[in-house]
Design a binder for these strands. Structure first.
Lengths: 221, 221
DNA sequence: GTTAATTTTTAGGTTTGTCTAAACTTTTTG
DNA sequence: CAAAAAGTTTAGACAAACCTAAAAATTAAC
């Protein structure tokens, strides 16, 4: 059973999936915020997705994806990440430019197109931001990385995932010379505001705020 | 000045451009036919495109693209043909499958995306159906090929362009073993209905109707 | 050169996805 | 635990892109 969903419906499902990872039940306002829409619009769409059995919805009590809703969401995420990989790897787009383009490409074409693209790219396992790419059956291999904000002191680390693709966020990273693969070491954590003093590329020191460090994920080297 | 147009507007412009090649002025019914829409819908859109200065429109007297309308149409055709080339060359789709997918992909992304794709593909000059791909500045290099229906008798020919991408048409070609590059020789033209007796691949004989032969374009070998 | 046929346009309606403003629940707070 | 605040839903509107049915303009036919 492989129905077709509108761009809008697909975006709602994808966004709900991401929000669910942080918080089991998703609220109307949280979704409105993420989608840059008004709460009333969210309620409208919830009724439609609910009628299509893509999510469980009880008025005033939030909502969560059904099995089918999850399946569709993961499919969109697969498309998104494969296109990001293609744009970065083959077309040589900067890793901070690919997100916006992939937002459009993810809604195009058939399953066959995506499976052929996957094969052409050599079945990559991570996108340019370090996020895992679901396979053709919808399986996601989670990464064992932790946010920089919780990393131990004086331990050599490598950035392996960036979990915020907003223009504003990527702008900070570019200015500070941070990207996937950059080597780091946390020298001090300030208890007052959670900010970190970090040594970048075994060279200069800089300070990263807590909200920033939460979206930078690292692995020990 | 690089405004954004809706998928629908882009499809109208592209289709008008194609119809204009055959007939200088395009009529409401002809466009309705090509777009699988009702004449009333065409009139609605004509008013909109006219207001945006994309075409010249005088009620009851047909319409033709403005300079800007032509520019946009050629841009969509460039996108379409580049994606077709990508799908066929890189993802190994059959040359008869690429049209439908390219109809979706052509509306996606920025000029930068298409220019990078063009570069990645090595600036191809023809799509998998033998149609020329406009360059980044909108220049189209026309092909010197002629329809099989007008080809001379007993002269070795090669199919170099297919000018109908409908499912029904491509189905005939597949069944008769005809594709870009196939070698042909016209043995006889029947005056009664314009049908052709053709020798295919210097092997078997077959008969092709005139409407069919009009969409097969050949070059002498 | 009227009448008939064809083509095109207008008028009014539908669906999808959005919005604002008002009403209604739930949660928080003194 | 009642009143205020916060969050959510309903009601009604709007734009885009279609549609059908009826009216108007053009073209063809006798």
């Amino acid at each position: 059973m492989h129905l077709n969903y509108s761009h809008s419906e697909e975006n709602y499902l994808k966004t709900i999936f991401h929000l669910q990872l942080e918080n089991q039940v998703v609220t109307t306002n949280a979704l409105a915020e993420k989608l840059n829409a008004r709460p009333a619009s969210i309620t409208d769409m919830m009724k439609k997705l609910s009628a299509k059995k893509l999510l469980n919805y009880k008025p005033y009590y939030g909502f969560s994806l059904s099995a089918e809703g999850k399946r569709v969401a993961i499919d969109i995420i697969r498309r998104h990440r494969l296109w990001e990989f293609f744009l970065s790897e083959k077309l040589k787009f900067g890793w901070d430019e690919v997100h916006v383009l992939a937002e459009e490409l993810e809604h195009v074409g058939s399953k066959k197109l995506i499976d052929k693209l996957d094969e052409y790219l050599g079945f990559p396992r991570f996108d340019p931001h370090g996020d895992p790419i679901p396979d053709s059956r919808g399986k996601i291999n989670p990464r064992h990385v932790s946010p920089l904000s919780e990393a131990p002191l004086n331990c050599p680390l490598k950035i392996s995932r960036i979990s915020n693709q907003s223009h504003e966020f990527l702008d900070v990273l570019r200015h500070k010379g941070l990207a996937i693969g950059t080597q780091l070491e946390v020298k001090k954590r300030f208890d007052f505001d959670g900010a970190l003093q970090v040594k970048i590329k075994a060279a200069h020191l800089d300070t990263l705020s807590e909200p920033l460090a939460k979206h930078i994920h690292v692995k020990k080297v």
